[in-house]
């Protein structure tokens, strides 16, 4: 496919950011992820699609060890971030999650002011030397979250007082405030209206120039719009992984085709 975006991508030769090898995930006895190997490139938006319960969110959560918090969850295999195994005992999950940020499906602002929601991460990671720098980070992050104009006059108001869509954009601002290298997004727009969705998608595309973004979405059109690579999961298997244009015009696997065209599969 001579998609313009590919041509663009081939120009700035992609580096590998995350490499997953034969990853298996079990919840107790249930085998949720079956032998998934995938390579996620830097400066690329990768979309995970698939029916509910196919394992895409589970796999996404493996990428910053969010599954550690679930007792019955067991992860096997290897996930390398910049060549280092993130499941190595030496790796501090808190440091890892500063590098691999996450935005969830349901907005979950801290019960603090809008300002403190965004300033929290930079503060604990010591990213700002003084108040002026912190102010700058907060403003920049809120702008990137496409919410600055709506909240600039009430930064002291509680984050929980915002509307659902605004809360989600606040969470995105919070996630980008620590300048992560990888941003994981689990259905980030399911609670947003079309305008806010477009703003978030624009933000995702902007983030792509510096970071690697992995997004789980149920909206096929969103995956097609924002991603350069698409992975289709089905029943815990990675069925097909390829260039987004190819997946949406000429998928190789019939299960992918059934799913994206809305046929019973």
């Amino acid at each position: 496919m001579d998609d313009m975006r590919i041509v663009e991508r081939q120009l700035d030769q992609q580096e590998l950011k995350i490499k997953a090898d034969n990853v298996q995930v079990y919840y107790g006895t249930s085998h949720a992820i079956k032998d998934v190997s995938v390579e996620i490139e830097d400066k690329t938006v990768t979309a995970f699609i698939g029916p509910s319960g196919c394992g895409k969110s589970t796999f996404l959560r493996c990428l910053n060890r969010m599954n550690d918090t679930i007792d019955i969850c067991r992860v096997e295999g290897q996930i390398l971030l910049d060549g280092e195994n993130i499941y190595d005992k030496k790796v501090d999950p808190v440091q890892l999650r500063a590098k691999v940020g996450m935005v969830f499906q349901k907005p979950n602002p801290f019960p603090k002011s809008i300002y403190d929601n965004v300033a929290y991460g930079p503060r604990i990671h010591g990213l700002a030397k003084n108040k002026a720098e912190l102010d700058e980070i907060v403003e920049k992050s809120l702008r990137r979250g496409a919410i600055w104009d709506e909240v600039k006059d009430r930064l002291d108001a509680p984050g929980t007082g915002l509307s659902g869509g605004q809360q989600q954009r606040l969470c995105i601002a919070r996630a980008v405030a620590t300048e992560p290298e990888v941003l994981l997004m689990d259905e980030p727009c399911s609670a947003l209206d079309p305008i806010a969705t477009a703003q978030v998608e624009e933000l995702i595309d902007e983030l792509r120039s510096n970071y690697s973004v992995v997004i789980v979405t149920h909206s096929m059109q969103q995956a097609a719009r924002v991603s350069q690579k698409t992975a289709f999961f089905h029943l815990g298997n990675l069925v097909e992984f390829g260039e987004t244009g190819q997946i949406f015009t000429n998928p190789v696997d019939s299960r992918t085709e059934s799913y994206i065209t809305g046929r019973i599969g």
Binding site: M220, Q221, F248, T249, N250, P251, E257
Partner: peptide, 9 residues
């Protein structure tokens, strides 16, 4: 309908 794959073709 935003057709994809075989439908788009």
């Amino acid at each position: 309908r935003a057709p994809t794959a075989i439908d788009l073709r």
